[in-house]
Write a protein that binds this DNA or RNA. Structure first.
Lengths: 207, 207
DNA sequence: GTCGATCCCTACCGCCCACTCGGGAAAGTC
DNA sequence: GACTTTCCCGAGTGGGCGGTAGGGATCGAC
């Protein structure tokens, strides 16, 4: 008697299958979105039949959320692993530059989030809540990194950290869109200029 | 003998129907995207049956492109009508601020473009070429407005106008995403701060 | 009033999709 | 080696989709 929602997969084989499914779903959803990406395509890409897939993820929606949480967790760990992020201020901007540089080498991941966030803007979309929460979280985290810079004296204190944080996120998302549509539009250089502008703007007034 | 692709609709009645269809399609595609928005929903919203709609737009794809061109044409005319845009420099940023302010009162239009550009980053999407071209066009136009400011001496000349232009577009798109996901995230204030940052950064060095 | 073009409908087709059912192979447990 | 649990498949179901076929109403031109 499996306790309703306890262990979705215990055996090693099941874990391997789950992993293959998540990788396949990343690829399919990145290409065709959630609505446009058939479950069967995910299944065959994971060397499974479609009912076989549904054994691990009972609905398409549950698969979507699993993919998002998985890929998101990786990204968050990456930022959290840098030292500059915790220091805040200009160093945090450099840490974000590192994320941008890494994203520039991982088109699939970038496309996944861009495609899905586009769909999820509508109210009824299964990932709407998820993305709304995610942006709130990331924005708050970025604002705090900026405030750490202000508290440490590296940034001048009379700027609204929350507003600046949302600008940083906006630039990252917007550059991704342009890059995806035309890969010659380099994200790295452009974010670097924005970071420079921001540091310049936030330079503390000389005493 | 109608010359293949000459006049798709000549009578006043047909023009009125076409117009209703475009408005309905804007609404449906904004809510559910191109892939997720059924033709039948557009048709009923336009007081038509689905084959009735297909009389005016022979395929769903042709309807999509018609919607995009229509809505885009309006927006372009709006910018072109301002005097600051042609003057370039800081005045052009103010003109863009006007666009942002207007967008903040027209959620459906903003959502239409955000949802569709998300879908269209995939290679096979019917609007892929369209959006790639569109961003190229807009980016070039914005870069030229910046260069006019540099030529007039309002902006310092050693900054890369093309890079700055893509930052401006990125901020607009990114802020729209955050605003759509959470309407309390004001686009107007935030773009204003970015415009201020940009003007600050581009202030010509004192002689 | 006639005639041709435009407009739009009812009925239908073939396809794709997420999900279900029932059963059987495999793997872990004792 | 029996028994349970996990894993996965073949076959099917109901619904939704874009697009087609063919005919009837409407309307402008003359």
């Amino acid at each position: 008697m499996p306790r309703s929602t306890k262990r979705p997969s215990s055996s090693a084989r099941g874990a391997r299958a789950r992993d293959a499914i998540l990788r396949a779903a990343t690829s399919v959803f990145a290409r065709d979105g959630y609505r446009g990406g058939p479950l069967a395509a995910v299944a065959t890409a994971a060397d499974l039949t479609q009912p076989g897939l549904l054994h691990h993820f009972p609905t398409k929606e549950s698969l979507l959320l699993a993919v998002l949480e998985e890929r998101d967790r990786e990204g968050a760990a990456l930022l959290d692993g840098t030292e500059g992020w915790h220091r805040g201020g200009p160093a945090a901007l450099d840490a974000l530059q590192g994320i941008v540089d890494r994203n520039a080498t991982n088109r699939e991941l970038v496309q996944l989030f861009t495609v899905l966030v586009g769909e999820s803007v509508s109210d009824g979309h299964p990932a709407h809540r998820y993305f709304a929460d995610r942006y709130g979280r990331i924005r708050t985290g970025t604002a705090e990194a900026i405030r750490r810079g202000q508290a440490g004296g590296a940034f001048r204190g009379d700027a609204d950290a929350e507003t600046l944080a949302s600008l940083v996120l906006a630039v990252m998302d917007g550059l991704q869109i342009q890059w995806l549509l035309d890969p010659s539009q380099d994200m790295t250089d452009r974010f670097a200029l924005f970071a420079e502008m921001t540091k310049h703007f936030l330079r503390p007034a000389p005493a």
